[in-house]
Design a protein around this nucleic acid. Sequence first.
DNA 1: AAAAAAT
Length: 533
Amino acid sequence: MLFSELGLGSEVLRAVEEVGYTTPTPIQEKAIPWVLQGRDVLGCAQTGTGKTASFTLPMIEILGRGRAKARMPRSLILEPTRELAAQVAENFELYGKYHKLNMALLIGGESFGDQIKKLERGVDVLIATPGRMMDLFDRGNILLTDIKVLVIDEADRMLDMGFIPDIERIVSLLPRKRQTLFFSATMPPEIKRLADKFLTTPEEVTVSAPASTATTVAQHLLVVNEQDKREALRRLIATDDVKNAFIFCNRKKDIAVVHGSLVKHGFNAGALHGDMVQSKRTETLEAFKAGSIDLLVCSDVAARGIDISDVSHVFNFDTPHHSEDYVHRIGRTGRAGKLGRAFTIATPEDGKLVQAIEKLIGKEIARFTIEGIETAELSFDADPRRRGRGAPKKDEPRRSGRDRGERTERAPRVERPAHVHVEPEAAEAAIEAHQHKRERHEPRHDRNRDRSEPRQDTRPEGRGEFRRDEHRRDEYRRDRDDRRDRRPRRDEDDDRGPPVVGFGDDVPAFILRAARPPKVSAVEIETVDGVEA
DNA sequence: AAAAAAT
């Protein structure tokens, strides 16, 4: 099957061809003809299946005929996150190259002025997150009476995020006579009910998960104690052949800590979460895409749908609380037929979470160990939250630390699969190669230094005053993050770290990331290359 | 338990 057989016009086909595609993905093949016929479509598909193009291509075709009037958009696409909305907008730009379609991206965190200006000029395609869309509607900047096509994307995630009331309200404002395309990765009853409500005699299009992750992503699990997590992460990044990676944390405050720690240790890392100013979010994601940042420490804002084709690794610094999130997170690697690798770092109290994940993916995640870092055992207490920093339940005596320890010991033991030992020399070579690669990121003037001499780091380890500075920096960070957490609403997160004295406002970037990754002796990894494909 | 989204 070729794109040219789907009924798309020559301009769209030319744009698709120029991007380099000739054959549609299954969902594109099934959905595009229905959309072109004006039918409603209920699509059960995840991101990574080519879902976006399955609606953008035929929409460009449909909207190509006709013109938009001021403030009366002709189509509306709703997305759960700003990044996804921006990604869909990019898709329209890419494939709508030979059409004169006006498009507006309505997302929060950006100025109203530009968005309103665009609406005034008349837009064919409106791509929005629900909050900003409703805001603009309530201000009278949008008339929804001319909407011909509605797309609800990632409906199950909209449900998770509590957007459904907004969506219902928005849909109630649209004309009854319209074409609706509804996409969801899963179809829980609540979603099914919505689909029935919004769609008229839809064509159902279902595609299986994108190569069901297991085929292209090798998965590993490391169980360590809380205090060893950061070192474990650094060792992993330095030892495995990491080109670039998403590093997922469960909490925003931990993102700051992990990001700060990586930067301090000389890694080229950026941070992304929903409380950062939008400009920073966009900038960081672009830098990661472009390769000027290797490591992206992020929250689940980036777990779903973010499509960067060439990511070598995903690290779960924290085990995700929802097992579906695990699948989405690791799905950021191993895309477009490439191989990827996912490492999850768990602590003993994550036992239940690991169990839930393994149940969902239908297999055990291969355990591995890192030499020199103590491997812990998963615990399967009834309520792991009570054991950690969580408060004890009402009407229950506070447990002492010793009590908690005993409970851990009584937990069932897990069988660990056999390990394959990686020879220290091999590990050394891998680290050497990794550090070599990093050197390409060095600023120009630094490249010509004499390599026969050991490098004089800008902030050498072990020099008292620098040590103190680093401690102060950590303290500063923790303090700053605490202050932020107490604020009712964060509006800025520039992650600049503490001021570096002596450079005024212009601290050279290399000062902030001059240190090299640590030397690692050896790492034991479970069948790294032979992991089941 | 937390993250996402409007200010």
